[in-house]
């Protein structure tokens, strides 16, 4: 955690990957601790397969947006988006990244061969950063749904210690904010990530 009191976390990915729920769950954990929380999310036109980022801040934040160089943790649903948002990360911060690239339609069209490997190599070469790589596809397959990618990444971030929240707190937040129908598969994803 940075010297500023309270958590600063940026969650980035592609519209439709479950980014907003991830930020609301972290916010829910902080709220349950009676912290003042602010979040900022991408909603609207940019959601249609575009780059999206959610910001979550605990403590007594002023701005809902994390300033550059202040994020304790960067959770990325795909490697290229992690690179796109890297300036938010604080020195010594943690990156949790899903290793599967999401190919933008533009890449196929322009003949750009994008598979995320260069982005991953860049992240691995960053000095003083804790990098947690998550094989999201494999976790989703084991959990039985591609919808649990957000929970798997959150669970990995929890396990890394970068969020300063516990597995139990995350599970409670899911029970509080997610429809009971989806509790079991989400809790299974957390279990798989925590092993």
């Amino acid at each position: 955690m940075s010297e500023r009191s309270g958590l600063n976390c940026v969650i980035c990915g592609v519209g439709g990957q479950g980014n907003v729920l991830a930020s609301r769950l972290i916010a829910q954990v902080l709220l349950a601790r009676d912290e003042h929380v602010k979040t900022a999310e991408t909603i609207g036109m940019a959601q249609r397969g575009g780059s999206v980022a959610s910001h979550v801040r605990g403590g007594h934040p002023q701005s809902p947006l994390v300033p550059k160089g202040c994020a304790d943790c960067l959770i990325a649903f795909e490697p290229g988006e992690a690179v796109r948002c890297i300036d938010y990360l604080a020195p010594g911060g943690t990156i949790v990244v899903n290793t599967q690239a999401a190919q933008p339609p533009v890449a196929a069209l322009q003949g750009i061969d994008y598979d995320g490997s260069e982005a991953l190599a860049y992240l691995r070469a960053l000095p003083g950063v804790q990098l947690v790589e998550v094989d999201g596809a494999s976790i989703c397959e084991q959990a039985g749904s591609s919808k649990v990618l957000n929970i798997a990444l959150l669970a990995a971030a929890v396990k890394s210690g970068a969020l300063g929240i516990t597995r139990e707190e995350l599970e409670d937040a899911i029970r509080e904010r997610v429809h009971p129908r989806f509790h079991e598969m989400n809790l299974r994803a957390i279990m798989l990530m925590s092993e």
């Binding site: 592609v14 519209g15 575009g50 290229g80 933008p104 339609p105 750009i112």
Partner: peptide
């Protein structure tokens, strides 16, 4: 990085 504008 490839640009990632919103699409249909």
């Amino acid at each position: 990085l490839p640009p990632r504008p919103p699409v249909l």
